[in-house]
Amino acid sequence: MPAQWMSLLLLLLQMTCYFRSGNCGKVLVWPTEYSHWLNLNIILDELTERGHEVTVLRPSASMTFMERVRNMICMLYFDFWFQSLNEKKWDQFYSETLGRHTTLAETIGKAEMWLIRSYWDLEFPRPTLPNVDYVGGLHCKPAKPLPKEMEDFVQSSGEHGVVVFSLGSMVSNMTEEKANTIAWALAQIPQKVLWRFEGKTPDTLGPNTRIYKWLPQNDLLGHPKTKAFVTHGGANGIYEAIHFGIPMIGIPLFGEQHDNIAHMVAKGAAVALNFRTMTRLDLLNALEAVIDNPSYKENAMWLSTIHNDQPMKPLDRAIFWIEFVMRHKGAKHLRPLAYNLTWYQYYSLDVIGFLLACVAVITFLAVKSSLFIYQKLLKMGKKMKNE
């Protein structure tokens, strides 16, 4: 599996739960980082509404006042910007909590069910295990009305419609040169553009483009006047575009974003650009191709049809499996026995070693036997000559 799985082990719930009266359980959650928390938070809200008691893990220790001040600053920094995963601290935290030595990797390996933030509208077919379910797009919901000022701007686009441009929350700045490159290309199209950008206003910004520090992305992508989505390829944005059938111009920046955009390109719903080497004409040509060529819209709508034609909504499916694990106190019947093997057993190194040893012994005995017989025959030959 490509780099996609690394980010997507990212919707893993580490749960220790039991049932109380009323069929409500306790859920212990290991929080994930970046945009994955948005998906996880939706699941936790639904579990809370169903009466389950949810606890999110945070390491704690005895701290001085200044240490608590620093801890609060760090907590806010990680909560609102990013949360880095420090395995050594998590290993220590789990060991102290459980009263025995353990590791984060060992705890993850005991997960009864894996909920992967993807689905077959984005992924390509491949074998999967029964304790893995794909719940990509669980955060998607019907579009809500836009703020009046934004709605007026969108409606002013007339028959040309609008383009939504967002490179995600992780990009807070870019060079003035790059911003001017983007702004110039956006100014050349007849569509109105809503651009999420927090840097200095580019000199080449056109009258058709408005800059916002934040955009109601789901609501904009669900607006009937939206023609295209310029995105960095984050899973949340990709799935919102798929949900509403919006073709994309992908400008991946890091991580699984390259893989996400490559999948969309392969499915005919996007054009990919390189952020570092992209010129103004590259961006303009990509915009015109996606907006003017109907095949991109048709393919995006095809993916939307696949995404929305499921027997259960992704969120309902995620909740079902979480409550399934609660009801049955696990899902060991779905876990492959490979989880119980050591690393050398998993790769059959002990079996291979045994067979090689057998081959070596048989070869050794065969060679020794051949030499012994040869020597006997040689002695017999010499004896017969002497006689």
Results as ranks from 00 to 15, higher is better:
Q217C: 14
A300P: 11
G137K: 11
Y346F: 15
L129G: 01
M326L: 15
Y347H: 15
S7R: 08
T64P: 04
F93P: 05
L341N: 04
L167G: 00
D350I: 14
L334W: 12
G25T: 13
K382D: 03
Y374C: 02
A286R: 09
G381P: 06
L215G: 00
P294G: 00
I189H: 11
L365A: 07
S7T: 06
T226S: 03
V29T: 08
E298R: 13
A366V: 10
Y94A: 07
I249D: 00
V361W: 03
I373S: 00
L341K: 11
E240K: 11
G250R: 08
W195K: 09
P59Q: 11
L138Y: 12
P59R: 13
H223K: 10
Y212S: 03
L377W: 06
Q14F: 05
L281R: 11
L253H: 03
P127Q: 08
I352Y: 15
R126V: 15
F93I: 12
Y119E: 05
E177M: 13
E176C: 04
M72N: 05
D45Y: 13
L28W: 11
E87N: 15
L98W: 09
K368C: 09
Q191Y: 02
L122M: 04
S84P: 12
Y374R: 05
R317I: 07
E198V: 14
L47R: 05
Y347P: 15
M150C: 09
S304N: 06
P127L: 13
E46C: 03
Y346I: 14
S295T: 07
W114M: 11
T363P: 07
W343Q: 14
I108N: 10
P147S: 00
E149R: 06
L303I: 10
G268R: 11
K368G: 05
E288L: 15
V54L: 05
H101P: 05
I319L: 08
S370A: 14
L138E: 05
D219A: 12
I322F: 13
Y296M: 01
F244T: 09
L40V: 14
I306G: 01
A228K: 05
D121E: 12
H139K: 09
R58G: 06
A286H: 11
I291C: 03
D133H: 06
V361P: 02
W90K: 06
G222W: 07
Q14M: 06
A105Y: 06
